[in-house]
């Protein structure tokens, strides 16, 4: 099971890395970070290897309350950016290794367009993340999804920098 998982993860990461394109530099996300600031790959400059991705060295500690991870999406997209493959593999592993752990995936959209339709877009992003976790070994009972659409922005501006921070899925460990 675990070996199968790791192989799948590695394959997936390779596939996604092969088609990766230059990505937008991470904006300052300190404003919306949870209690895991030190875990942000963006801060790990000593290992600034692009292959490591922003999710490197994430400590999962479901005993100490909610642990937030954020995955960002491109405009009008619900497809996962290649850089997140490794991160999601780690989340999936964590879930597969602990059947008592569960996550809540909170999908969000930027403010453009109609509100209830944006609820749909946020949900579509949550479901993308959910499917990736399921493919990699998490079980359906461990994952719940919710979409807040544009109702809970992380950044309040009406500009592209804010929109980038708002198109996201937040992964929250719920126990």
């Amino acid at each position: 099971m675990k070996l199968h998982n790791m192989i799948l993860t590695a394959l997936l990461a390779l596939t996604l890395a092969a088609c990766s394109s230059p990505t937008i530099p991470d904006p300052d996300r300190s404003a919306d970070s949870g209690m895991n600031d030190s875990s942000r790959g963006a801060d790990s400059s000593g290992f600034g290897d692009e292959d490591l991705g922003p999710g490197e060295d994430v400590p999962f500690d479901s005993m100490n309350g909610e642990l937030t991870m954020i995955i960002y999406f491109d405009f009008d997209q619900s497809e996962l950016r290649p850089e997140y493959a490794d991160l999601l593999a780690r989340h999936a592993n964590s879930l597969a290794n602990s059947s008592r752990t569960s996550v809540r995936l909170e999908g969000h959209a930027d403010e453009r367009g109609s509100r209830e339709y944006n609820i749909g877009l946020g949900e579509r992003r949550s479901q993308t993340v959910r499917r990736m976790l399921l493919i990699q070994g998490a079980s359906a009972g461990q994952i719940s999804t919710v979409s807040f659409g544009e109702e809970r922005p992380a950044a309040f501006g009406s500009d592209e920098a804010s929109y980038e921070q708002n198109r996201r899925v937040e992964i929250k460990y719920t126990n």
């Binding site: 209830e116 609820i119 749909g120 949900e123 579509r124 999804t145």
Partner: peptide
């Protein structure tokens, strides 16, 4: 389970049209 959204009353007031998403998020 999932999305409950976008309610609107029918003209006779007896029904609501609404959006459900379910576990798989198909609205």
């Amino acid at each position: 389970v999932g999305i409950n959204g976008a309610p609107a009353f029918s003209p006779d007031g007896r029904k609501l049209v609404l959006t459900l998403g379910g576990t798989d998020g198909n609205l």
